[in-house]
Amino acid sequence: MIGLEIRNLWKKMGPNQALSGVGFRVSPGHLCGLIGPEGAGKTTLLRVLAGLLKPNEGEVSYLLNGEIRSFESIRADIAYMPERQSLYPDLSVAEHMDFFKELYQVDESTYLTRRKELLHITRLTEFEDRPAGKLSGGMYKKLGLMCALLRSPKLLLLDEPTNGVDPISRREFWDLLYRLVHQGITVLVSTAYMDEAERCGQVQLLQDGKLLAEGEPREILLAESVDSFDAFYLKKGAEV
């Protein structure tokens, strides 16, 4: 199982200071939520963790079964799903899976069982031949997740996977994430929906590139004496 130690990350994106000294730990096998409004630095942080951006300062340690490993050596165990649409609108669900199977070099028999299993739990079996451009928002996100899961990652980085998805599909999506955590996958998921924060075992609350609070959702709410994360951010906004 993979854990993360993130220390003092600073990252400037153009004129914006996207991350200002963010640091926290992600325990192996946990579902960790990155919560924050638009522009809090969630996407930048996940991109740094996925190796797509280099921080100006600070570092990330990837711990595989407690041992520090270089990013390159565990790159194949990390799956990342970007926030913005990133699939090919003209390729069908099946073609996407075939394509990513080759990229991840999953062997044929593992692929076939995994593919069947994934299509089953995402309930996309009957949409196998539908192009990604014609899928609904929820199905599209599920397809993205399936592509990421094809290689059996140990660390899953999901950037706002439920953004723009209807409430029922969102609930399904979360159930899916719980199943993954149950299988020992460490999941780091970002969201701007405050109600989803309470679904995570552990949350990091971000605003303007800074970490406002972290820990178990219930404890944070209790400590701040607010009854929801909406109220938490309103309160923090008032303090500034």
Partner: peptide, 13 residues
Amino acid sequence: ENGSMELLLSTPV
């Protein structure tokens, strides 16, 4: 433009 480059670059390719 499609955003797929971000996904491609995050794979081992």
